[in-house]
Design a protein around this nucleic acid. Structure first.
Length: 459
RNA sequence: GGUGGGAUGGCCGAGAGGCGAGGCUCAGGACUGCAAAUCCUGCUACACGGGUUCAAAUCCCGUUCCCACCUCCA
């Protein structure tokens, strides 16, 4: 079975075929760097990172674009509030986003273009739209897209132009239609601006994605992704701009659902933001990633501390199986893809079904281990590790490995010495002494297991 | 008003006409000096009311409640 994916445009799951065989171009709407990310932003990154890893694992060459929108109304607003230049604020939060992605093992995009670096492309695109009669400049220097000049505006969100609640729009008088949106905003005192044929100004919110997608992926590309709340207006307007310019644009649209708290969407305005660095005090990065990736990307993920903890316990079971398998096999497991895992992933990235497959593989592997069947153990461990790798949760991925390996060696030596003493005590049936050693090791945060092959410890 | 999504066991979370997803928790058992880890067994749920069907969590009709988008949004 090959990959089937949902498409917001058709509202159904259909076989995925790339425009160029063997190659996939993906554009993901990244951050507007106006504030630190919450786990909802990062969930989006993780969901589509899993898509990317699965395509890579399936043999595709993937060009993955995730933009940074570093100029918009909110950035200018927040810069005033935080008393720093707008570009300093954008840079500050871009770094926070990058760090959060890195901490959760989200692969860096192939290219990560910034809006402010593509003003030339935007101006070209806007000129082209004006030439084609799809956009118009007004006397104050604003440029608007004429939505009624398009054939199929609002096809993605399935709305009708006349049913939209009319926007509270003070500038309505300068626009042909109230629904027309700004491609270019004329300069206001104190705001950054760039020179254009229509006067100095700055980009509207949507134009950067149309311009950058075209610059890096061409006039037509495979997949455009983003959060559910971008369908309207952002993605609808990207389509309007690109189709208006005569470009086919994205073949397929994928949208991830939100992380919710108490049934409600996480948002800055509600003030219920959950920050990555706070959650990393509770669980490890690999566990947070496992949790955020565990629900289907099109389902809401209802956050609670208990749900996070429980998910972390589930992950540790899988992880400890792999670590045990590695020490039993005397080497790291290979990476393999089980057929059932592939079937789940090919079914519109059915991660929950894939997790069920992993659970079965772990059970089979544990049974093989008990039966001393190392050939089967090696296969199951490889399939588990391969699956975790696709999910971005391979315990041996360099992201998760501590750099203090030298210290680990010292600890290992000390623990081994203590364990030898405990074994000696146990041999004498001096269980009180043996348990005292075990308790002390456990108190220090290490896990001890007695196996038929002798005691095992792990951090 | 328009457009979508949703309600599943103690908890998380899939499924979308028929063979109990999976995990977590809990209880019992095997193993163990005792643990831990592991394995086995158990806990038979789909908002409500009708209907269709041999068969409904799933389809149809109606109802209740929740959430989101309608030009700031992942």
């Amino acid at each position: 079975m090959s990959l089937n994916l949902y498409n917001t445009l058709t509202r159904e799951v259909s076989p995925f075929t790339s425009i160029t065989p063997g190659k996939v171009g993906i554009y993901l709407c990244g951050a507007t760097v106006q504030a630190p990310p919450h786990i909802g932003h990062i969930r989006s990154g993780i969901n589509f990172d899993i898509l990317r890893r699965w395509l890579l694992s399936s043999g595709y060459e993937v060009t993955f674009i995730r933009n940074v929108t570093d100029i918009d109304d909110k950035i200018l607003h927040n810069a005033i509030h935080e008393e720093m230049p707008w570009w300093a604020l954008a840079q500050k939060y871009e770094r926070v986003f990058s760090a959060a992605y890195a901490q959760l093992n989200v692969m860096p995009p192939t290219y990560e273009p910034r809006a402010t670096g593509h003003i030339t492309q935007m101006v070209q695109l806007i000129s082209h739209l004006i030439d084609r009669g799809k956009a118009y400049a007004v006397s104050n220097g604003d440029v608007y897209l004429d939505v009624r000049s398009l054939d199929s505006y609002l096809a993605l969100s399935g709305q009708k132009l006349d049913d939209l609640q009319s926007a509270a729009d003070g500038e309505a008088s300068v626009k042909k239609n109230p629904q027309d949106f700004a491609l270019w905003k004329s300069a206001k005192p104190g705001e950054p601006s760039w020179p254009t044929p229509w006067g100095d100004g700055r980009p509207g919110w949507h134009i950067e994605c149309s311009a950058m997608a075209q610059a890096y992926l061409g006039e037509e590309f495979d997949i455009h992704a983003g959060g559910l709340d971008l369908i309207f207006p952002h993605h609808e307007n990207e389509i309007a701009q690109s189709n208006g310019a005569g470009y086919p644009f994205a073949q397929r649209w994928l949208h991830n659902a939100w992380v919710t708290t108490a049934g409600e969407k996480m948002s800055k305005s509600l003030g219920n933001t959950l920050r990555i660095h706070e959650l990393l005090k509770r669980v490890r990065g690999i566990e947070l990633r496992w949790y955020l990736g565990s629900a289907h990307y099109r389902s809401m993920l209802e956050y609670s501390p208990d749900a996070l903890d429980e998910s972390a316990v589930n992950f540790r079971r899988v992880e400890s199986f792999l670590k045990r398998a590695a020490s039993s096999l005397g080497k790291l497991p290979e990476l393999a893809i089980a057929d059932e895992f592939a079937a789940a992933m090919n079914d519109d990235l059915a991660v929950p079904a894939a997790l069920a497959v992993i659970s079965e593989l772990v059970r089979d592997g544990n049974n093989a281990s008990t039966a001393k069947d190392s050939a089967t153990l090696a296969i199951k461990a490889a399939q588990v590790r391969g699956a975790l790798s696709v999910l971005g949760c391979d315990p041996w991925d360099s992201t998760w490995i501590n750099s203090d390996a030298g210290l680990d060696e010292v600890i290992s030596g000390l623990v081994t010495t203590l364990l030898a003493e405990r074994e000696e005590a146990r041999a004498r049936k001096a269980f009180a002494s043996a348990d005292r050693i075990r308790d002390r090791i456990t108190e220090l945060g290490l896990t001890l297991e007695d196996t038929p092959d002798g005691p095992r410890w792990s951090r």
